[in-house]
Design a protein around this nucleic acid. Structure first.
Lengths: 119, 119
DNA sequence: AGTATTACTACCCTCAATGATAGTGCTATA
DNA sequence: TATAGCACTATCATTGAGGGTAGTAATACT
């Protein structure tokens, strides 16, 4: 971490923030990270993902999967069986989110403890 | 990481997702992580933060700071000088987000490279 | 006298995110 | 026969995130 104190170089700080905002733009909304996490446990089909993620609607899942595909985080594969089955898998690039999601998850667990404690 | 394969134990996966969703609920929106990152470089005043974060309006900054305060990620201190100055600082609990934000930031930088490459 | 700064609050508005519900074409199962 | 599952798509409605503009009380600068 470089320095970015109030009195020093405020523009440094602005620059640090940019890639965070980039990332947030790709991963925005309630559902993208849960979907990615679900797929880190193996390729899955549409209905399977929707069962993993409590409360997501088909409409949202469909849309979010499309977004993730466009951003190369998820790969969609159609198998030409009868009936055709569709499988979603995480890409290498998607896997690079694993560490970050783990940190987020741990923080979520910590936060719950923290809030419980301070009542 | 415990196992959570399609054929094995789908409920495991659901459980893994819960704390991620908890975290996302606290940190949602475009602005909270940028604000926290800005404050990891030292306590700052309102206008200073708004200068660090390009594009945020006073209205949003005010609201997000309030949210962060409620969730004990940011501490607000009023100094009774004339005129009174208000200082925002990150809490210990807020600091526990640092690793996660660093991971997110690195991913943001990686992602930019990735997307540039595949055109 | 006029303008700027600080740390906001109030009001109004728009649009994107999300939710609810239903439908489709096909197959498998009871 | 009918019921259910799959992988969606379409339509409609709602909500909330976020933006635009303005105002305020106090002081400080020019």
């Amino acid at each position: 971490m470089t320095e970015c104190k109030q009195q020093h170089n405020p523009e440094e700080c602005t620059k640090m923030i940019v890639p965070v905002r980039d990332a947030l733009e790709i991963l925005n909304g309630k559902w993208k990270l849960p979907i990615i996490l679900s797929l880190t446990f193996g390729a899955k089909r549409f209905k399977q993902i929707s069962k993993d993620i409590n409360g997501i609607t088909d409409r949202m899942l469909s849309k979010e999967l499309k977004d993730l595909e466009v951003n190369q985080l998820v790969k969609r594969t159609v198998h030409d069986t009868f009936p055709p089955t569709v499988e979603y898998a995480i890409t290498e690039h998607g896997k690079s989110l694993e560490k970050m999601i783990t940190e987020l998850r741990n923080w979520g667990l910590e936060h719950r403890k923290q809030i419980m404690g301070n009542n």
